[in-house]
């Protein structure tokens, strides 16, 4: 523990409350600054490229069919155990593809490990999207199957 010794104020400073007036000058200057508030639903924050929103699935034009190969690595590494993948033989070519892919947003902690371990090329099949509005009216709506994971979430425009 350290004891802070404040400097003794001079009589002049104490008599005319100089430090109090200085404090008031600070607040007065701030009064005229531009507010930093972001009017959220009306104005949306600028999202940086590496922002980790909720995980989504994607395909790639270079790969025919579904990009996910149902290797189950994302499901294994997921710390919250929120991914369930079931595979089936690929419709085109060799190997497997995802038949069922369920992601429980209620449990997801947005860590991004699933994206990191995803072995597919040229892009990971599961990726961290830029969507962040996770509020739902029902808990069940947070369990997303493959169809929902492919679709981008519709954003509502607020005018006021």
């Amino acid at each position: 523990m350290s004891v802070v010794q404040r400097p003794e104020l001079s009589l002049w400073k104490r008599l005319f409350l100089v430090e109090l007036l200085q404090g008031m000058a600070v607040t007065f200057r701030h009064w005229w600054r531009k507010p930093t508030t972001e009017q959220y639903p009306k104005e949306r924050p600028k999202i940086l490229p590496r922002f980790r929103g909720i995980p989504k699935l994607q395909d790639h034009p270079d790969v025919e069919g579904i990009l996910c190969i149902a290797c189950n690595q994302c499901s294994i590494i997921c710390p919250d155990d929120c991914i369930t993948v079931l595979g089936e033989p690929r419709t085109v070519g060799k190997g497997k593809q995802a038949k069922v892919f369920i992601l429980d947003y209620e449990r997801c902690c947005l860590c991004g490990l699933c994206e990191e371990v995803c072995p597919t090329t040229p892009v990971p099949a599961i990726f961290m999207s830029h969507e962040y509005e996770l509020a739902r009216y029902k808990r069940v709506d947070l369990m997303n199957d493959m169809k929902e994971l492919y679709e981008p979430q519709p954003t509502k425009e607020y005018l006021k």
């Binding site: 607040t27 007065f28 701030h30 009064w31 005229w32 531009k34 507010p35 930093t36 508030t37 009017q39």
Partner: peptide, 14 residues
């Protein structure tokens, strides 16, 4: 409003 301005906020807006 005034305290919001002094804290570089906007105060009630909606």
């Amino acid at each position: 409003k005034l305290i919001a301005f002094m804290q570089v906020r906007m105060g009630p807006m909606r």
